[in-house]
Amino acid sequence: MYEKIVDILCAINEDQPELRQSLSPETHLNNDIGLDSLQMIQFMLKVEEQLNVVIDYDEFDYEHLQSINTFMDFLKSCQPREQLLYEDVKS
C-alpha cells in the first residue's frame, strides 16, 4: 500500500522528480508535500480508485494526514469499493 501511495503522490507532483527520494512513512501529507486543494482531491480520488476503497469523508479528518502511515491506518478502516459487473456498466 505504501508504494502505491508514493506512486500516486509522485504522479500528482510530477513537477518534483526528487519527491520520491524525500518520502518516508513518516512524511506529513500536507506540510511536507505541500499539496494544494486540487491536488489533494486528485490524490484522494486516485487512492480510492487504485487501492479499491471508499473513503468515508464523514470519518476523514485532518489528523489522518499526519503521516503516510497514519493515512494508511485510516484506509485500512475504509470499506472496499464494490466492483461493478459488466452488466451493471452496460445498463
Rank of each mutant, 00 (worst) to 15 (best):
V47M: 08
R20W: 04
R20E: 14
E14Y: 13
F71V: 11
I41H: 01
Q21K: 14
L29M: 09
M40W: 07
H64Q: 14
M40Q: 13
N52E: 11
V6D: 00
S37D: 14
N52R: 14
V6Y: 07
L9Q: 01
Q16P: 00
D32A: 05
G34M: 06
E59H: 11
L75M: 09
L19G: 02
K46F: 08
C10H: 02
A11K: 11
H64D: 14
L65N: 04
Q79H: 12
R20H: 13
E63G: 10
E82N: 11
L84N: 04
E18W: 10
D32M: 07
L19A: 05
K76E: 13
L75S: 08
L65M: 14
A11W: 02
C10I: 07
M44N: 11
V89S: 00
A11T: 08
Q50L: 13
K76S: 03
Y62A: 12
F43C: 07
E49D: 15
Q50D: 14
L19S: 02
N30I: 12
K46T: 13
I41G: 02
V89A: 01
D61T: 12
V54N: 15
F60C: 14
Q50E: 15
H28R: 09
L9M: 03
C78M: 09
N69I: 02
N31M: 09
S37M: 13
N69C: 03
L29I: 13
H28Y: 04
F60S: 11
V89Y: 05
N13P: 03
Q16N: 12
N52T: 11
H28E: 08
Q79F: 09
F60T: 07
L84C: 00
